[in-house]
């Protein structure tokens, strides 16, 4: 790919990506804010997170289940995000080291 094409591709990608970033609040702007819409948006936020975590965990295999499982367990026990994340990652690294996955 020559330099002109490369620059055009990057600018086009940047435009499309910005469109996705700005498009959400733009589209919602057409709907009148109501308790119903706000309820929907709040469910949307949680559901997006679920849709990020669940497939990543399933596709990541056993080590991913260990990481996410230990993290959630640690959240229940210590309720500190950083500590829970560290324990989850540590558990997954140990699992991979000793199970040879």
């Amino acid at each position: 790919m020559n330099t002109t094409d490369a620059l055009l591709v990057i600018f086009a990608m940047a435009l499309v990506t910005y469109g996705t970033r700005a498009g959400g609040i733009w589209l919602v702007g057409f709907m009148p804010m109501s308790p119903r819409l706000e309820a929907f948006l709040r469910y949307l936020a949680g559901s997006v997170l679920v849709a990020l975590v669940v497939p990543a965990t399933v596709r990541g295999g056993a080590a991913a289940f260990v990481a996410v499982g230990v993290t959630l367990l640690a959240m229940v026990v210590v309720r500190r995000g950083l500590v829970a994340m560290a324990l989850g990652i540590l558990a997954a690294a140990l699992y991979r080291a000793f199970m040879g996955a």
């Binding site: 086009a12 990608m13 499309v16 498009g23 959400g24 919602v28 949307l44």
Partner: peptide, 24 residues
């Protein structure tokens, strides 16, 4: 072009929901 821009849109379309959810 078409493949590049479609892939970019598909992968980043999740931003639409992220943006919508923080409208308030």
């Amino acid at each position: 072009w078409v493949t590049i821009l479609l892939a970019t849109f598909a992968i980043n379309s999740r931003h639409l929901l992220l943006g919508a959810s923080i409208r308030p």
